[in-house]
Simulated assay, not measured.
Amino acid sequence: MDDRDWQVLHILYNQKNITKTAQLLFITQPALTKRLMQIEEEFGVKIVNRGIKGVHFTPEGELLAKRAGQNHCSREGDQGRNIQYEAKRIGDPTANGC
């Protein structure tokens, strides 16, 4: 995951709308949707639920978006690996929070 992906999450979290986010990033809506699916696949968790009235972030997506807003993490660093672990743990009903 690169800086642009963190930017995508941050803007989408604030806009709650894929079309508006794509416009702000100067990319097409299908390109944004494809990138979101790639990010979800990379982290192994669902980030957003898409609906008629925009997107709603899952708990895992909330965590990633909040970290994206902090703009100090990268996927390659230790913090990035911790985010990936935390996001997966939130989505795991058997996780005990350790």
Rank of each mutant, 00 (worst) to 15 (best):
V48C: 13
F26G: 02
V48H: 04
G61F: 05
H10L: 09
R4W: 14
F57Q: 10
E41Y: 02
E41P: 00
L24M: 15
G80W: 06
T19I: 10
L9W: 10
A31E: 01
N71G: 10
R35I: 10
V8F: 15
L32M: 11
Y13V: 00
F43T: 00
R67G: 09
R75A: 12
V45Q: 03
A87G: 07
T94S: 13
Q84M: 13
R81V: 03
N71T: 03
D3M: 01
S74R: 12
A95Q: 04
Q23A: 15
V8T: 10
D78Q: 07
Q29N: 11
F57V: 09
A95E: 11
Q23M: 06
N82R: 13
D2E: 14
G61C: 06
G69W: 05
Q38C: 05
R89S: 13
D5N: 14
Q79T: 01
L63E: 01
G61P: 03
L64I: 13
K53Y: 10
L9S: 07
A22N: 01
D3F: 10
Q23H: 13
N14R: 15
G80S: 08
A22Q: 06
I27N: 08
S74P: 02
R67W: 09
L64P: 03
D2G: 15
L24Q: 15
F57M: 12
G61Q: 05
L36W: 04
G44V: 07
Q84T: 15
D92Y: 03
L63G: 00
Q38L: 14
E76D: 15
G69Q: 09
A31K: 11
R81N: 05
G80F: 08
P93G: 00
F26S: 14
T28N: 05
E41L: 14
T33A: 12
G61T: 06
G97P: 03
H10M: 11
K16E: 14
A65M: 03
E40A: 13
D3K: 13
I18R: 08
R75N: 01
G69D: 03
P30I: 13
T21Y: 09
V55E: 10
K53I: 01
N71I: 00
Q79I: 02
I39M: 09
L64C: 04
E60C: 12
K53D: 10
Y13Q: 06
K34R: 12
D2Y: 07
E62Q: 12
F43D: 00
R4A: 08
T58D: 08
K34H: 11
T28Y: 02
G97C: 07
N82S: 06
N49G: 04
G51M: 05
T94I: 01
C73Y: 15
C98A: 10
I27W: 14
H56G: 06
K46D: 09
M1S: 12
L63F: 13
Q15S: 12
V8N: 02
G80I: 01
V8I: 15
T21R: 08
M1G: 07
R35P: 07
D2T: 11
I90M: 07
Q7S: 01
L64M: 15
W6Y: 14
R67C: 10
G97R: 03
N17R: 04
G54W: 09
I47D: 05
